[in-house]
Design a protein around this nucleic acid. Structure first.
Length: 253
DNA sequence: ATGGCTATGTAGCATAGA
Protein backbone atom coordinates (compact mmCIF):
# COMPACT_ATOMS: atom_id res chain seq x y z
CA UNK A 1 0.00 0.00 0.00
CA UNK A 2 1.27 3.44 -0.94
CA UNK A 3 0.21 6.47 1.09
CA UNK A 4 1.06 10.11 0.47
CA UNK A 5 0.47 13.54 1.96
CA UNK A 6 0.74 16.94 0.32
CA UNK A 7 0.01 20.45 1.48
CA UNK A 8 -1.25 21.84 -1.83
CA UNK A 9 -1.65 25.46 -0.66
CA UNK A 10 -4.88 25.89 -2.68
CA UNK A 11 -6.31 22.85 -4.46
CA UNK A 12 -7.82 25.15 -7.07
CA UNK A 13 -4.38 26.32 -8.18
CA UNK A 14 -2.64 22.97 -7.74
CA UNK A 15 -5.29 20.67 -9.27
CA UNK A 16 -3.48 20.11 -12.60
CA UNK A 17 -0.25 19.29 -10.76
CA UNK A 18 -2.14 16.95 -8.44
CA UNK A 19 -3.74 15.07 -11.33
CA UNK A 20 -0.35 14.70 -13.05
CA UNK A 21 1.16 13.44 -9.82
CA UNK A 22 -1.64 10.90 -9.21
CA UNK A 23 -1.24 9.52 -12.74
CA UNK A 24 2.51 9.19 -12.22
CA UNK A 25 2.66 7.90 -8.63
CA UNK A 26 -0.69 6.10 -8.35
CA UNK A 27 -0.88 6.08 -4.54
CA UNK A 28 -3.66 4.11 -2.85
CA UNK A 29 -4.45 7.28 -0.93
CA UNK A 30 -3.24 10.86 -0.69
CA UNK A 31 -3.98 13.23 2.17
CA UNK A 32 -4.27 16.88 1.15
CA UNK A 33 -3.93 19.95 3.36
CA UNK A 34 -4.74 23.61 2.77
CA UNK A 35 -7.30 22.88 0.07
CA UNK A 36 -8.82 26.32 0.83
CA UNK A 37 -12.14 25.24 -0.68
CA UNK A 38 -15.66 25.11 0.63
CA UNK A 39 -17.14 21.63 0.19
CA UNK A 40 -19.50 22.64 -2.64
CA UNK A 41 -16.46 23.73 -4.69
CA UNK A 42 -14.44 20.53 -4.22
CA UNK A 43 -13.36 19.16 -7.63
CA UNK A 44 -14.93 15.71 -7.14
CA UNK A 45 -15.51 15.31 -10.87
CA UNK A 46 -11.95 16.01 -12.06
CA UNK A 47 -10.49 13.80 -9.37
CA UNK A 48 -13.06 11.10 -10.17
CA UNK A 49 -12.06 11.18 -13.82
CA UNK A 50 -8.50 10.51 -12.65
CA UNK A 51 -9.72 7.36 -10.87
CA UNK A 52 -9.91 8.66 -7.31
CA UNK A 53 -12.75 9.13 -4.85
CA UNK A 54 -12.76 12.12 -2.53
CA UNK A 55 -13.73 12.75 1.06
CA UNK A 56 -13.17 16.28 2.24
CA UNK A 57 -13.82 18.87 4.86
CA UNK A 58 -13.11 22.47 3.95
CA UNK A 59 -13.83 26.14 4.48
CA UNK A 60 -13.36 29.39 2.63
CA UNK A 61 -9.85 30.89 2.32
CA UNK A 62 -8.02 28.87 4.97
CA UNK A 63 -7.29 25.29 6.02
CA UNK A 64 -9.29 22.44 4.50
CA UNK A 65 -8.31 18.75 4.31
CA UNK A 66 -9.18 15.83 2.05
CA UNK A 67 -8.37 12.16 1.46
CA UNK A 68 -8.35 10.86 -2.11
CA UNK A 69 -8.50 7.08 -2.52
CA UNK A 70 -8.63 4.50 -5.27
CA UNK A 71 -10.95 2.28 -3.21
CA UNK A 72 -13.90 3.58 -1.21
CA UNK A 73 -13.01 5.40 2.01
CA UNK A 74 -15.23 4.18 4.83
CA UNK A 75 -16.10 5.29 8.37
CA UNK A 76 -15.21 8.91 7.56
CA UNK A 77 -14.85 11.23 10.56
CA UNK A 78 -14.23 14.96 10.67
CA UNK A 79 -12.09 16.74 13.25
CA UNK A 80 -10.61 15.63 16.55
CA UNK A 81 -13.10 13.70 18.70
CA UNK A 82 -14.09 15.71 21.78
CA UNK A 83 -12.33 18.90 20.60
CA UNK A 84 -14.45 21.74 19.28
CA UNK A 85 -12.60 23.46 16.44
CA UNK A 86 -14.06 25.85 13.89
CA UNK A 87 -11.00 25.28 11.68
CA UNK A 88 -11.17 22.35 9.25
CA UNK A 89 -7.92 20.54 9.96
CA UNK A 90 -8.57 16.80 10.34
CA UNK A 91 -10.35 14.11 8.36
CA UNK A 92 -10.04 10.34 8.91
CA UNK A 93 -11.22 7.24 7.09
CA UNK A 94 -10.67 3.52 6.67
CA UNK A 95 -8.79 2.80 3.46
CA UNK A 96 -7.94 -0.80 2.54
CA UNK A 97 -8.06 -1.83 6.19
CA UNK A 98 -5.85 1.05 7.36
CA UNK A 99 -7.08 3.93 9.52
CA UNK A 100 -5.85 7.01 7.66
CA UNK A 101 -5.75 10.29 9.58
CA UNK A 102 -5.14 13.41 7.50
CA UNK A 103 -4.03 16.37 9.60
CA UNK A 104 -3.15 20.03 9.11
CA UNK A 105 -1.58 21.12 12.38
CA UNK A 106 -1.85 24.87 13.12
CA UNK A 107 1.17 26.97 12.16
CA UNK A 108 1.40 28.96 15.38
CA UNK A 109 2.84 32.10 13.72
CA UNK A 110 5.21 33.03 16.59
CA UNK A 111 5.75 32.09 20.21
CA UNK A 112 4.08 35.25 21.52
CA UNK A 113 0.98 34.78 19.37
CA UNK A 114 -2.46 33.54 20.46
CA UNK A 115 -2.10 31.18 17.51
CA UNK A 116 0.86 29.51 19.20
CA UNK A 117 -1.26 28.83 22.29
CA UNK A 118 -3.96 27.44 20.01
CA UNK A 119 -1.36 25.23 18.30
CA UNK A 120 -0.20 23.74 21.61
CA UNK A 121 -3.78 23.23 22.85
CA UNK A 122 -4.67 21.69 19.50
CA UNK A 123 -1.69 19.30 19.63
CA UNK A 124 -2.58 18.26 23.17
CA UNK A 125 -6.12 17.36 22.09
CA UNK A 126 -4.84 15.69 18.92
CA UNK A 127 -2.41 13.55 20.91
CA UNK A 128 -5.02 12.50 23.49
CA UNK A 129 -7.47 11.61 20.73
CA UNK A 130 -4.84 9.67 18.74
CA UNK A 131 -3.93 7.67 21.81
CA UNK A 132 -7.51 6.37 21.83
CA UNK A 133 -7.59 5.89 18.06
CA UNK A 134 -4.37 3.86 18.16
CA UNK A 135 -6.01 1.51 20.67
CA UNK A 136 -8.96 1.07 18.30
CA UNK A 137 -6.85 0.57 15.19
CA UNK A 138 -3.57 -1.37 15.17
CA UNK A 139 -3.08 -0.36 11.53
CA UNK A 140 -3.20 3.42 11.70
CA UNK A 141 -1.27 6.12 9.85
CA UNK A 142 -1.23 9.85 10.59
CA UNK A 143 -0.23 11.94 7.60
CA UNK A 144 0.01 15.61 6.87
CA UNK A 145 1.52 18.98 7.60
CA UNK A 146 2.59 18.86 11.25
CA UNK A 147 4.20 22.30 11.20
CA UNK A 148 6.94 20.88 13.44
CA UNK A 149 10.55 20.18 12.50
CA UNK A 150 11.23 17.35 14.97
CA UNK A 151 15.03 17.61 15.12
CA UNK A 152 17.84 19.98 14.20
CA UNK A 153 18.71 17.83 11.19
CA UNK A 154 15.24 18.71 9.84
CA UNK A 155 16.21 22.40 9.71
CA UNK A 156 18.60 24.05 7.22
CA UNK A 157 19.91 26.48 9.82
CA UNK A 158 19.22 25.14 13.32
CA UNK A 159 20.96 28.07 15.01
CA UNK A 160 18.82 30.65 13.26
CA UNK A 161 15.66 28.64 13.99
CA UNK A 162 16.53 27.63 17.56
CA UNK A 163 13.52 28.18 19.78
CA UNK A 164 11.47 29.68 16.92
CA UNK A 165 8.01 28.55 15.92
CA UNK A 166 8.08 25.12 14.19
CA UNK A 167 11.22 24.25 16.20
CA UNK A 168 10.42 25.31 19.77
CA UNK A 169 10.90 22.83 22.62
CA UNK A 170 7.16 22.72 23.37
CA UNK A 171 6.34 21.86 19.75
CA UNK A 172 9.06 19.23 19.59
CA UNK A 173 7.78 17.78 22.87
CA UNK A 174 4.30 17.58 21.33
CA UNK A 175 5.77 15.65 18.39
CA UNK A 176 7.62 13.35 20.79
CA UNK A 177 4.34 12.75 22.63
CA UNK A 178 2.95 11.30 19.38
CA UNK A 179 6.01 9.06 19.11
CA UNK A 180 5.40 8.10 22.75
CA UNK A 181 1.97 6.75 21.79
CA UNK A 182 3.80 4.24 19.61
CA UNK A 183 3.94 5.98 16.23
CA UNK A 184 7.11 5.91 14.16
CA UNK A 185 8.32 8.68 11.85
CA UNK A 186 8.33 6.65 8.63
CA UNK A 187 10.96 8.89 7.01
CA UNK A 188 13.52 8.03 9.67
CA UNK A 189 13.03 4.28 9.31
CA UNK A 190 15.42 4.56 6.35
CA UNK A 191 18.73 6.11 5.41
CA UNK A 192 17.96 9.52 3.89
CA UNK A 193 19.92 12.20 2.04
CA UNK A 194 21.31 15.10 4.07
CA UNK A 195 19.27 18.29 3.89
CA UNK A 196 15.99 16.44 3.33
CA UNK A 197 13.17 18.95 3.68
CA UNK A 198 9.47 19.13 2.76
CA UNK A 199 8.90 22.91 2.82
CA UNK A 200 10.84 25.88 1.45
CA UNK A 201 9.86 29.55 1.70
CA UNK A 202 8.70 31.06 -1.58
CA UNK A 203 11.03 33.99 -0.96
CA UNK A 204 14.77 34.40 -1.36
CA UNK A 205 15.19 31.44 -3.72
CA UNK A 206 14.96 29.25 -0.64
CA UNK A 207 14.42 26.03 -2.60
CA UNK A 208 17.41 26.52 -4.89
CA UNK A 209 19.53 27.35 -1.85
CA UNK A 210 18.28 24.28 0.05
CA UNK A 211 16.88 26.49 2.81
CA UNK A 212 14.04 24.25 3.97
CA UNK A 213 12.40 22.49 6.87
CA UNK A 214 11.01 18.97 7.20
CA UNK A 215 7.59 19.60 8.67
CA UNK A 216 5.37 17.19 6.67
CA UNK A 217 5.34 13.70 8.07
CA UNK A 218 3.88 10.22 7.83
CA UNK A 219 3.57 8.57 11.23
CA UNK A 220 2.91 4.84 11.25
CA UNK A 221 1.69 2.57 14.02
CA UNK A 222 4.15 -0.13 15.10
CA UNK A 223 2.38 -2.72 13.00
CA UNK A 224 2.55 -0.60 9.83
CA UNK A 225 6.13 0.54 10.55
CA UNK A 226 7.27 -3.08 10.70
CA UNK A 227 5.97 -3.59 7.17
CA UNK A 228 7.18 -0.21 5.82
CA UNK A 229 9.34 -0.67 2.69
CA UNK A 230 10.15 2.94 1.80
CA UNK A 231 9.54 6.56 2.72
CA UNK A 232 10.61 9.61 0.75
CA UNK A 233 9.92 13.23 -0.16
CA UNK A 234 9.19 14.09 -3.79
CA UNK A 235 11.14 17.34 -4.06
CA UNK A 236 10.69 17.36 -7.86
CA UNK A 237 7.24 18.85 -7.29
CA UNK A 238 8.83 21.97 -5.82
CA UNK A 239 10.49 22.60 -9.22
CA UNK A 240 7.15 22.96 -11.04
CA UNK A 241 5.74 26.19 -12.42
CA UNK A 242 3.58 27.70 -9.66
CA UNK A 243 4.62 25.08 -7.10
CA UNK A 244 3.15 24.56 -3.67
CA UNK A 245 5.69 25.61 -1.05
CA UNK A 246 5.41 22.02 0.28
CA UNK A 247 6.53 18.80 -1.44
CA UNK A 248 4.57 15.52 -1.24
CA UNK A 249 5.74 12.89 1.24
CA UNK A 250 5.26 9.18 0.52
CA UNK A 251 5.40 5.91 2.43
CA UNK A 252 4.88 2.37 1.14
CA UNK A 253 4.23 -0.78 3.15
C1' DA B 1 17.02 43.76 6.17
C1' DT B 2 10.95 41.51 10.73
C1' DG B 3 11.22 41.93 4.34
C1' DG B 4 11.69 39.00 0.65
C1' DC B 5 6.61 35.35 -2.22
C1' DT B 6 2.06 33.29 -2.92
C1' DA B 7 -2.95 32.73 -2.33
C1' DT B 8 -7.40 34.47 -0.96
C1' DG B 9 -11.03 37.83 -0.68
C1' DT B 10 -12.06 41.65 -2.73
C1' DA B 11 -11.28 45.80 -5.70
C1' DG B 12 -6.19 48.66 -3.14
C1' DC B 13 -4.74 46.31 0.44
C1' DA B 14 -5.26 43.09 4.53
C1' DT B 15 -4.43 38.47 6.41
C1' DA B 16 -2.01 34.24 6.63
C1' DG B 17 1.30 31.02 5.72
C1' DA B 18 6.06 28.90 7.95
Amino acid sequence: MKLAAWNVNSLKVRLPQLLDWLAREQPDAICLQETKLEDHNFPVQDIGNAGYRSVYCGQKTYNGVAILTRETAEAVEHGIGGFVDAQKRVISAMVNGVRVVCAYVPNGQSLDSDKYRYKLDWLKAFSAWLEGESKKYARIAVLGDFNIAPEDRDVYDPKAWEGQVLCSPAERAAFEALIGIGFRDSFRLFEQPDKSYSWWDYRMNAFRRKMGLRIDHILLSGELARDCKSSRIDIEMRKNERPSDHAPVIAAF
